[in-house]
Design a protein around this nucleic acid. Structure first.
Length: 996
RNA sequence: AGGCCGGUAGCUCAGCUGGUUAGAGCGCGCCCCUGAUAAGGGCGAGGUCGGAAGUUCAAGUCUUCUUCGGCCUACCA
C-alpha cells in the first residue's frame, strides 16, 4: 500500500514578512524624507531632547556656488553620522547647517551675467550688483540644501545660517570693530597683483600666464667701502700694527681690513627682467646655500658702444652662473680671486646703483643691505636677487623678516609706495622718474611697455652700473580680462596683528587644549599658526562685508575717538537694517555727525575667511538654541589653513579662546588609483548620480566603511562592494523581521532561563554595546560598521540563525528555546536597528516601521546592554564548540563534493577537539541524539553541528545516514531512529500523537 | 621647492609598545541547499606588507634613501 507522503510544510512556523528583499532605494528614500517631514522629525528631536546635555557639531559653511560634489557629500554625511550618533547616545545634538555666501567666485559669475547682457561692472550700480550677488548665492543655497537633504542629512534646514544674512553681516562688522578697539588692527602695505589697465587688484585666479617680451638687465651694486681704496686699507693696517701692537682687537681689526681690501672696486651683480623696479630697490638677497666667487675682469670684448665695466673691475657672482654672466657682459677673460663667504656677505653693505645718478639729489644715499633668503636659487640670474619690497611678495617677505638687521643699519623698514594706481611712479621717486608709466594704460599701445623701463636703463647707463641688457621672453602674469600685463605693487592693506596683544600665543595655547582627530592635526595647525604672518583681511572687491572703519586725516581710526560707541551703534544699525549696502550707502555725516572733516569711510571689504571665521559669533553665540562654543568642528584637512584657523584667530582675538573643544579632519575623495578627481582626468563621480542609481544609503555606507582620516577612494568597484554589504545587512534584518512575526513581550524568556546559545548572543551584544559608545565618541564609524557587519555575517547569519532555523521552524511554538530565540532576536533587532540608524538612516527607518510602526527610529536612543549579559566563560566554551564545528564542516566537505552527502543533515559525525566535552557540559549541550522532552527540547551537539547525529571521539569523521535504519523526518528533514514519519519533537509541535 | 600625511590580498579595512606558517569581510572559484530563495550554508585559491639599503638573534612594525599619491604653502627675480 503506497500513499503520497504527507507534506508537512504547512505545519512549519516559517518566517513571515512582506518586507521586500530588494530595497529600491532611489524610489523609497524620498518617501521616507516625506515621512520625516510629516513627523516634523527635526522639531520633535529638539523638543524631545530638551534639557539633555548638548552636543554641538558646528557646520563649516560650504561655498554657495554650484552643485554638491563627492567631497561635500562625504563631509555632510560624516557630520550626519556624528550628529545622529550623539543624539541617540542621549545628547541634544542640534545641527544648524550654514553657507558661505560672499566672495570672488560669485562676484565673477555675476559679472559674467552682466557681461552677457552687454554691461560691464562699471555700468551697474554697486547696490544692484550686490543685490544680484545675493540672489545668486541664495539660489545655490536652496539647491544645495535640497541635495544635502536628499542624502538624509538631518538639521535645521528651514533656518540655516548664512554669512550674507543682514544679522550675520552686522555681527561680522561688530567683531571687526571689537578687534579694532582692542588695538590688534593696523593699516600696513603689501605688494599685490595689480592691473594698471583696469586699475584694480587681482586675485591669483584672475591672472593667466603667457609669454611676454621683456628687457633683462644685469646691474651691479658697488660694495660700499665709504670710498676707501687699497692704499687706505694698507695704511690703516700698518698704522694699527705700529701704534696699537698690544691691542686685544688688533687681530680682528686687521682681518676685517684685509677682507674689505679685497672688495675695493667690487660689485655684487643682480639680474632682473623688471628694470622699472630698480628705483624701488632697497636690498639684495642671497642664499646661504650658494657658493659665490669674487671675479676680476682681465679682458673685455671690443664693442661699438660704451661699456660700464672695465678691466680690473671685480664682480661677485654665484660660481655656477659666472660663465653665463661673463658671457652676457662681454667679458672675454677673468680670474677668480677668492671665495665670497656667507659671513662676508652678511657683513657687506652695498650702494644703490642709482646713487650717483644725475638728478637723484641724494634720494639713493641709503645703505643697501644683503639679506639671506630661501627664495634665492642658482638656477638663473646671478645668485643674487634684487629686492624691491614694494614690488614682489618674496622681496616683501625677506624685507619684513629682517627687521633686526635693518634696524642695526639704521634703515627705515617702512615699505615705500613707489607706484600709483595707474602704474606710474609717485613723488617719492626722484623728479626724472615721477609720473613715468610701466605699462601703457590707454590708446593703441595699451598693455605695451611704458616709459619707466627705458628711463631706468638710461639712468643705469649714466651711472655705469648696467653690465648688460638683452631682450628675452618669459611667462608672466596677465589680466585675464584685459590681457594686459600685471604688475606687483604695494598698496595699503588692513592687518590683524599676530603679536600686538599676543594673539599668536593665545592661539597656540588654545591649540594645546583642543582635542584633535587624528592627533597629527594639532601639529599641522600649530606649525602654521606659529609661522604665519599677520592676517591680511582687506580686499579691494565688491561682494563682501565692508571694513566698517572711518579713518581720520592722520590715519587714525574712529574706534579711538571718544564718540566711538555712538558711531559704532549707527554703523551696526545701518548694516542690520540694510545689509552691507547700509555701510556703502549711508553718508559719512550720518554715521559721524561731528568733527568729520577729512575723515573717510574705508571702501575695502573683508577677506571671506574673516566672514567664516565669525560663524561661531553670529551662529553659535547669537542663536538661543545653541551653546556659545562648539564641541566639534569637522572639515577636510585643507581647513587647517582655512576655517579652523580663521575661526581660531578671530575667536582668540575677540574672546581670548578657541570656539571649539575638538577638531576632526577628513581626507579628500580620490579615484580608484588614488588620484584626485578632476574634469580633465574624467574620473569625477557625482553623489547625486549615485543616489539616483543606488540610493543615498549606499553612499552613506561608503562613508561609514571608509577610513576618512586618509584619502578616501571611490570607484564603481567600491560602490559595488558597499551594495553587496548593504544587501547582506538588509537580508539579516529581513530574516529577523520574519522570525519575529507576531512577537509579543509576553513570550519573553528571562536570560537565566535561556539556552547557552541565546546567552552567548546576549554576551556578544554586550560586547558590541560596551565598545559602541567609545567608538561613537571617538568618531570611529568605520569600526562600528565593520564590527556590526561581521556580527551579522559571522555570528548571526552563518552561526546563530543557521543553527536556530530548526528550532524556529520546527519546535513547538511555546518551547523554551524557540521563545528564547525570539526574545533574543527582538533584543538584537532593537540594538542593530538603532546602531545602524545613523548610517543607514533610510533603511533602518523602513526596518523599524515593520515591527514598531509609528514614531521614527531616529527618535530612539541606543539600547542598554546590561553587564549581566556578560559571560566570558560561556564565550570561551562557545569558541571551543565553534572550532569543533569548523572541523566537522571541513570533514563533511569532501563527502559533499563526491556527492555522497548533500545536506549536512544526512550526516552522522564524530566531533573532536580539545576540551570539547568539558565545554559542552558547561554549556548544557547534550550529546544524546534525541530530546529528553520532545515538547520542550533542549540543545544537542547535533543541533550545533546541523547534522542528524553527533558523538564525541578522538578523530573527526563523517558517515552517511541515508542507507542506515535511520529515516528522514518529513517535517524537520532530520534523520532519526524510531517509528513514524516525523520525530517526537515534530509530533509534539503539531500536536499530533506519534503517527503509527 | 618646503611642511604634514599615506602606500598591507582584486576591493574596503585589522595588525598595540619589533617575536610563532600576515588577519577579517566582500569579491572570485568549486560545492550544497531550495522551508531567508533575485536569498542561505560549506570549502578553497589569492599578499616577496610600494622599492632599496641598514639596525637587530628577529622588521609589515625602527632608521635612511627612493618612488607613487593626497592636502597645504611657495616659486618662476
Amino acid at each position: 500500500m503506497t500513499s503520497e507522503p504527507r507534506d508537512y510544510r504547512d505545519t512549519l512556523f516559517l518566517p513571515k514578512t512582506d518586507f521586500p528583499m530588494r530595497a529600491g532605494l532611489p524610489k523609497a528614500e524620498p518617501k521616507w524624507i516625506a515621512f520625516w517631514e510629516e513627523q516634523k522629525l527635526y522639531t520633535t528631536l529638539r523638543e524631545q531632547s530638551e534639557g539633555r546635555p548638548t552636543y554641538t557639531l558646528h557646520d563649516g559653511p560650504p561655498y554657495a556656488n554650484g552643485h554638491i560634489h563627492m567631497g561635500t557629500a562625504l563631509n555632510k554625511i560624516l557630520k550626519d553620522l556624528i550628529n545622529r550618533s550623539h543624539q541617540m547616545l542621549g545628547h541634544d545634538a542640534n545641527y544648524v547647517p550654514g553657507w558661505d555666501c560672499h566672495g570672488l567666485p560669485i562676484e565673477w559669475k555675476v559679472e559674467e551675467e552682466f557681461r552677457a547682457k552687454g554691461k560691464s561692472k562699471d555700468d551697474v550700480a554697486p547696490a544692484e550688483f550686490r543685490a544680484r550677488c545675493r540672489d545668486y548665492a541664495k539660489q545655490w543655497v536652496d539647491v544645495q540644501s535640497e541635495e544635502f537633504q536628499r542624502l538624509g542629512v538631518v538639521g535645521d534646514w528651514d533656518n540655516p545660517y548664512l554669512t550674507m544674512r543682514f544679522e550675520s553681516e552686522a555681527r561680522i562688522c561688530h567683531e571687526l570693530l571689537k578687534i579694532a578697539e582692542s588695538g590688534q588692527l593696523y593699516r600696513g602695505s603689501k605688494p599685490i597683483m595689480w592691473s594698471p589697465v583696469e586699475q584694480t587688484a587681482l586675485a591669483e585666479a584672475e591672472v593667466e600666464y603667457k609669454d611676454r617680451k621683456v628687457s633683462q638687465i644685469y646691474v651691479r651694486f658697488p660694495v660700499n667701502l665709504s670710498g676707501l681704496n687699497e692704499n687706505d686699507f694698507d695704511y690703516a693696517i700698518s698704522y694699527a700694527k705700529t701704534n696699537h701692537p698690544n691691542s686685544e682687537n688688533l687681530q680682528d681689526f686687521v682681518a676685517s681690513r684685509e677682507r674689505d681690501k679685497k672688495y675695493v672696486n667690487a660689485s655684487v651683480v643682480i639680474w632682473t627682467t623688471t628694470p622699472w623696479t630698480i628705483p624701488a630697490n632697497r636690498a639684495v638677497s642671497y642664499s646661504t646655500d650658494i657658493r659665490y666667487g669674487l671675479y676680476e675682469i682681465t679682458d673685455l670684448e671690443a664693442v661699438e658702444f660704451d661699456l660700464g665695466q672695465s678691466v680690473g673691475d671685480r664682480l661677485i657672482v654665484a660660481d655656477d652662473l659666472w660663465e653665463i654672466v661673463s658671457k652676457a657682459s662681454f667679458i672675454r677673460a677673468s680670474k677668480r680671486i677668492q671665495d665670497v663667504t656667507a659671513e662676508d656677505l652678511e657683513q657687506m653693505v652695498l650702494s644703490h646703483p642709482l646713487r650717483d645718478m644725475p638728478g637723484a639729489n641724494g634720494t639713493y644715499h641709503f645703505p643697501v643691505p644683503l639679506l639671506a633668503g630661501d627664495h634665492v636659487t642658482a638656477e638663473a640670474g646671478t645668485g643674487f636677487v634684487h629686492t624691491a619690497p614694494s614690488h614682489g611678495e618674496d622681496d616683501f617677505n625677506v624685507w619684513m623678516s629682517n627687521g633686526d638687521k635693518l634696524a642695526s643699519l639704521g634703515i627705515d623698514p617702512a615699505v615705500p609706495m613707489t607706484m600709483d594706481d595707474k602704474g606710474c611712479y609717485t613723488d617719492v621717486m626722484p623728479k626724472r622718474f615721477q609720473g613715468l608709466d610701466v605699462i601703457r594704460t590707454s590708446g593703441k599701445k595699451r598693455g605695451q611697455d611704458g616709459k619707466a623701463n627705458g628711463e631706468v636703463i638710461k639712468a643705469l647707463v649714466e651711472t655705469g652700473n648696467l653690465l648688460a641688457r638683452a631682450p628675452m621672453t618669459l611667462r608672466d602674469a596677465h589680466s585675464w580680462r584685459s590681457k594686459a600685463p600685471v604688475i606687483r605693487r604695494a598698496t595699503p592693506q588692513w592687518f590683524i596683528s599676530m603679536s600686538k596683544t599676543g594673539l599668536r600665543d593665545t592661539a597656540l595655547a588654545e591649540i594645546d587644549k583642543t582635542t584633535f582627530w587624528p592627533d597629527r592635526g594639532r601639529n599641522r595647525i600649530g606649525t602654521m599658526v606659529k609661522d604665519r604672518p599677520d592676517w591680511l583681511i582687506s580686499r579691494q572687491r565688491s561682494w563682501g562685508v565692508p571694513i566698517t572703519l572711518i579713518v581720520g586725516p592722520k590715519g587714525e581710526l574712529h574706534t579711538d575717538r571718544d564718540d566711538a560707541d555712538a558711531i559704532n551703534a549707527r554703523i551696526l544699525e545701518a548694516v542690520r537694517e540694510h545689509g552691507v549696502d547700509g555701510w556703502f550707502d549711508t553718508p559719512l555725516q550720518d554715521l559721524m555727525p561731528d568733527d568729520n572733516d577729512d575723515w573717510a569711510k574705508v571702501t575695502d571689504i573683508l577677506d571671506v575667511w574673516f566672514d567664516s571665521g565669525c560663524t561661531h559669533a553670529f551662529c553659535l553665540k547669537e542663536r538661543d538654541d545653541l551653546p556659545d562654543r562648539a564641541d566639534l568642528y569637522m572639515e577636510g584637512s585643507d581647513q587647517h589653513r582655512g576655517w579652523f584657523q580663521s575661526s581660531l584667530l578671530e575667536s582668540c582675538a575677540v574672546y581670548g579662546e578657541a570656539p571649539y573643544d575638538g577638531i576632526l579632519t577628513h581626507g579628500f575623495v580620490v579615484d580608484a588609483k588614488g588620484l584626485k578627481m578632476s574634469k580633465s582626468l574624467g574620473n569625477v563621480m557625482s553623489p547625486l548620480e549615485l543616489t539616483q542609481k543606488y540610493g543615498a544609503d549606499i553612499v552613506r555606507l561608503w562613508v561609514a566603511s571608509s577610513d576618512v582620516t586618509e584619502e578616501i577612494r571611490i570607484s564603481d568597484e567600491v560602490i559595488k562592494t558597499n551594495t553587496d554589504s548593504y544587501r547582506k545587512l538588509r537580508n539579516t534584518l529581513r530574516y529577523m523581521i520574519g522570525a519575529l512575526d507576531g512577537y509579543d513581550d509576553s513570550e519573553a524568556i528571562a536570560p537565566e532561563d535561556m539556552p547557552a546559545l541565546e546567552r552567548w548572543v546576549l554576551h556578544r551584544l554586550w560586547e558590541l554595546g560596551s565598545e559602541h559608545e567609545a567608538m561613537v565618541r571617538n568618531h570611529d564609524h568605520r569600526t562600528i560598521f565593520s564590527k556590526l557587519f561581521n556580527f551579522c555575517t559571522n555570528d548571526l547569519s552563518a552561526f546563530y540563525f543557521d543553527i536556530r532555523k530548526d528550532a524556529l521552524y520546527c519546535d513547538p511554538l511555546d518551547s523554551t528555546r524557540r521563545r528564547a530565540c525570539r526574545t533574543v532576536m527582538n533584543a538584537i533587532f532593537e540594538r542593530l536597528t538603532t546602531w545602524l540608524a545613523p548610517i543607514l538612516c533610510f533603511t533602518m527607518e523602513e526596518v523599524w516601521q515593520q515591527l514598531r510602526p509609528g514614531a521614527s527610529v531616529h527618535l530612539e536612543t541606543f539600547r542598554d546592554c546590561p553587564d549581566a549579559w556578560r559571560d566570558d566563560a560561556l564565550d570561551a566554551h562557545m569558541a571551543t564548540v565553534r572550532m569543533a564545528r569548523d572541523a566537522v564542516n571541513e570533514a563533511i566537505e569532501p563527502l559533499r563534493r563526491d556527492k555522497v552527502i548533500k545536506s549536512s543533515l544526512e550526516a552522522a559525525v564524530i566531533a573532536a577537539g580539545p576540551d570539547l566535552s568539558r565545554s559542552l557540559s558547561a554549556l548544557g549541550i547534550d550529546v544524546a541524539d534525541r530530546y529528553a522532552d520532545p515538547a520542550d527540547p533542549s540543545d544537542t551537539l547535533a543541533d550545533y553541528l546541523i547534522v542528524s547525529k553527533a558523538e564525541i571521539g578522538q578523530v573527526v569523521s563523517v558517515s552517511d545516514l541515508k542507507d542506515t535504519k535511520a529515516r528522514k523526518c518529513l517535517r524537520s528533514w532530520k534523520y532519526f531512529e524510531g517509528e513514524g514519519e516525523i520525530t517526537p519533537r515534530d509530533a509534539a509541535a503539531i500536536g499530533e500523537p506519534k503517527a503509527a
